[in-house]
Design a protein around this nucleic acid. Structure first.
Lengths: 130, 130
DNA sequence: TGACATCTACGAAAAACTTCGTATAAGATT
DNA sequence: AATCTTATACGAAGTTTTTCGTAGATGTCA
């Protein structure tokens, strides 16, 4: 009974990004998008999708001539794992520090800041009556 | 002129964590701490520190019999890079989503939440008069 | 000083990750 | 049907990361 976290590698994450965005895609579609950002070959992308299929990171529909791939784990789940990992490995669990760096790193719109504020309020309420 | 981001690997990050925490440490000290969490050998840790020295991730004081290591780049700098990387690769730049996951992942104390709220206020002010 | 404990150096294997070439299958076209 | 185009399968090489064994240096102390 292995607790496979199935943490995607860098290359795998790039592919997952595309799949999440488009919900589903063929090798060709993924390759075109990835290739625009950073030159890569069709077969490399294909190989990754095959590997990811074996790992259970994606699932594929073999019906059509060109197989259609789809991320198996929802985006949020994977993101949660990545955040948890970073939090533990690089921040010794300090959410405060992590959030601080996020706000420094990325210029955030007023609307987003307001939303984050709202999230904090909710977290406070949740913590209050536990 | 290579723009070395010097992104530490997983194992390197674990070692850096210890060095940040203790400010400086010998191989033995690092090994003891790491080994408590996950079995590893002394020479493995030593090898990593030697590699990291070559890469410029750490510096060492050879004065004493047991060399003393220290992280070369400040913790904040490395953390900033890691956050920026995660933000781009897994969150398509959405600070909002990232923060949301942090708050979900880690039960955060009321004091910390208050501090985060304060940081948001500052960010809002900074954004207002730009 | 000799035996013992502790340390660094270093090569190299093992494992994980990435990339690509070639073979082959199958639908589309003329 | 023969040819062209577009797919998948898959082995294997190239890299990077991780792990560890062994050799040798140096300090300790009885």
């Amino acid at each position: 009974m292995s607790k496979k976290t199935n943490k995607p590698t860098t290359a795998e994450l790039e592919i997952l990004s595309v799949l999440w965005e488009k919900d589903a895609a063929t090798v060709r579609e993924v390759h075109e998008i990835l290739n625009a950002a950073k030159p890569t070959t069709y077969t490399t992308v294909l190989k990754f999708l095959q590997i990811m299929d074996e790992k259970g990171l994606v699932e594929r529909d073999k019906q059509a001539k060109a197989h259609v791939y789809r991320a198996k784990q929802p985006q949020g789940e994977t993101q949660k794992n990545l955040v948890a990992d970073l939090l533990e490995k690089a921040f010794r669990g300090s959410a405060l520090k992590l959030v601080q760096h996020v706000l420094e790193t990325k210029p955030t719109s007023a609307a987003e800041l307001a939303e984050i504020r709202q999230m904090i309020t909710e977290a406070e309420e949740k913590g209050a009556n536990k």
